[in-house]
Measured scan of single mutants.
Amino acid sequence: NKASVVANQLIPINTALTLIMMKAEVVTPMGIPAEEIPKLVGMQVNRAVPLGTTLMPDMVKNYE
C-alpha cells in the first residue's frame, strides 16, 4: 500500500503548506501520494483541513 499525505495539524484556509504540516500515512481512500510532499510545499489549501485529514487533490490550489 502506498502512503498518502495527511494533515499533521489543523491547516487554516489559504495557508501555504510547509513540511511540518504534513505526514505520510497509509489511508483509505488514498489521497495525494506521499512522494508529492516536496511539490506541495508552498502551495495553498483552498479550505480548512482538520488534523488527521487526508489531503485530496481538490483541497490544494493549482495542484495537478
Results as ranks from 00 to 15, higher is better:
N1C: 03
N1I: 12
K2G: 08
K2R: 10
K2T: 13
A3S: 12
A3N: 07
A3Q: 08
S4D: 00
S4H: 02
V5Q: 00
V5E: 00
V5S: 06
V5R: 00
V5I: 11
V6R: 14
V6A: 05
V6G: 02
A7N: 02
A7E: 01
A7F: 01
A7Y: 01
A7P: 01
A7C: 02
N8G: 11
N8A: 11
Q9N: 11
Q9R: 08
Q9Y: 09
Q9V: 09
L10T: 14
I11D: 00
P12T: 14
P12V: 08
I13F: 08
I13Q: 13
I13R: 08
N14H: 12
N14K: 07
T15L: 09
T15S: 09
T15N: 07
A16L: 09
A16Q: 12
L17H: 00
T18L: 06
T18S: 11
L19K: 04
L19C: 03
L19I: 09
L19T: 12
L19V: 14
I20S: 13
I20Y: 08
I20R: 08
I20L: 05
M22F: 11
A24N: 05
E25R: 06
E25V: 13
E25K: 06
E25S: 11
E25Y: 05
V26S: 11
V26D: 13
V26T: 15
V27T: 14
V27A: 14
V27K: 05
T28K: 15
T28I: 08
T28H: 09
P29G: 10
P29M: 09
P29H: 13
P29E: 09
M30R: 07
M30Q: 15
G31K: 01
G31F: 02
G31E: 02
G31Y: 02
I32H: 01
P33G: 14
A34L: 05
A34F: 15
A34M: 14
A34H: 12
A34E: 04
E35Y: 15
E35L: 11
E35W: 05
E36W: 15
E36N: 10
I37C: 02
I37E: 04
I37A: 09
P38S: 15
P38M: 03
K39F: 06
K39P: 05
K39V: 09
L40N: 00
L40W: 02
L40A: 01
L40T: 02
V41M: 13
V41E: 09
G42Q: 11
G42V: 02
G42Y: 15
G42C: 02
M43N: 04
M43P: 00
M43D: 06
Q44K: 04
Q44A: 09
Q44Y: 11
Q44P: 10
V45G: 01
V45W: 01
V45R: 00
V45E: 00
N46F: 07
R47E: 15
R47F: 14
R47D: 11
A48N: 08
V49M: 06
V49F: 02
V49P: 01
V49W: 02
P50Q: 14
P50E: 13
P50F: 13
L51R: 15
L51E: 15
L51S: 08
G52L: 13
G52A: 06
T53H: 15
T53E: 08
T53L: 07
T53D: 06
T54P: 14
T54H: 04
L55I: 12
M56G: 07
M56V: 11
M56T: 12
M56D: 07
P57Q: 12
P57T: 10
P57S: 13
D58Q: 11
D58S: 15
D58N: 13
D58T: 05
D58K: 14
D58F: 11
M59C: 02
M59P: 01
M59Q: 03
V60D: 00
K61H: 12
K61R: 05
K61G: 14
N62K: 07
N62T: 05
N62D: 14
Y63I: 04
E64H: 11
